[in-house]
Design a protein around this nucleic acid. Sequence first.
DNA 1: TCCATCTAGTTCAACTTTCAAGAAAAGGTC
DNA 2: GACCTTTTCTTGAAAGTTGAACTAGATGGA
Lengths: 167, 167
Amino acid sequence: MTTASTGGTHWLSDEEQCVWRAYLHATTLLEDHLDRQLQRDAGMPHIYYGLLVQLSQAPGHQMRMTELAKDAKITRSRLSHAVARLERNGWVRREDCPSDKRGQNAVLTDEGYEMLRRSAPGHVRAVRQAMFDRLTAEQVRSFGEIMQVIATGLEPEGTDADLPWLR
Amino acid sequence: MTTASTGGTHWLSDEEQCVWRAYLHATTLLEDHLDRQLQRDAGMPHIYYGLLVQLSQAPGHQMRMTELAKDAKITRSRLSHAVARLERNGWVRREDCPSDKRGQNAVLTDEGYEMLRRSAPGHVRAVRQAMFDRLTAEQVRSFGEIMQVIATGLEPEGTDADLPWLR
DNA sequence: TCCATCTAGTTCAACTTTCAAGAAAAGGTC
DNA sequence: GACCTTTTCTTGAAAGTTGAACTAGATGGA
């Protein structure tokens, strides 16, 4: 399960293993960190917070369900449950889509916007502290490129890919 | 919730926002991708697979619960559930720790090892395809450094930090 | 020794996510 | 229009995760 070419599998090199492990550690710790920060300060997991942010940036503070799922890179099922919960909290409301009777718009409520306004500073601080404060400008640039490459690789253009929001 | 200095909060710059978003997209998509790959080919989520890998690299194919939680960056509670499930699958077995009667060792079974041997090539292929095949050698090096910095930042040396395996 | 405190690990309930199934509307095609 | 397929979104059950509470054993004094 470790080093170089056996049997036809192109195993990871020592450096690659090291990088992969660092990646898993960093992402696991960071997700845990932000989930806790937001659960404490905003009463919701990180991904739910991201949904509210998306809505706050959309025209009319609203978005079609599938669009929202696509932007958040999650399944529509997951989004349905999430929006149901956010609706119970009074931060989001559903509206029928006028042009397509199957469609629903998720709308950020005023209370939702207000809660976002209150918790944004703390969240930015946490992100900065965990990531941007620790990296040089050059590292930030390079990091952005790398993440872009990986993200793009996982959702190719001409697409038959198994993407969450199409499932 | 967007651009430069308002009210005293040091908001993210446009570039930083872009990088942060790319990070969230890449990590969300990659986690989804690997979870599916492993669920399909090994019948377990990615994090469970990681536990088996850890065990396979430990002396005697076994590890104390808390050590394992620490290496995987998860809570002991989560690990308890995970090991219970892996035990039901016959891939892990628990043994009492001889030196500390509170302790448990998680032991990789032969079937567990066998399943790992079978599924490792496919998993490496998926990781390579999503990440290493797309990055230059220089990018891999830089990426490793960055991830290391972030991971280390989240588990500082002289520690009072809120780390999952201490909760 | 006795006691308070700490550590290791588990368990329960609440919550989140996944997967498969399903209802309802939209879009062809004949 | 009738029929079939696709798209949109929801639901319910099973699986996984979290956070708090709990048991049992270790530890370090007084």
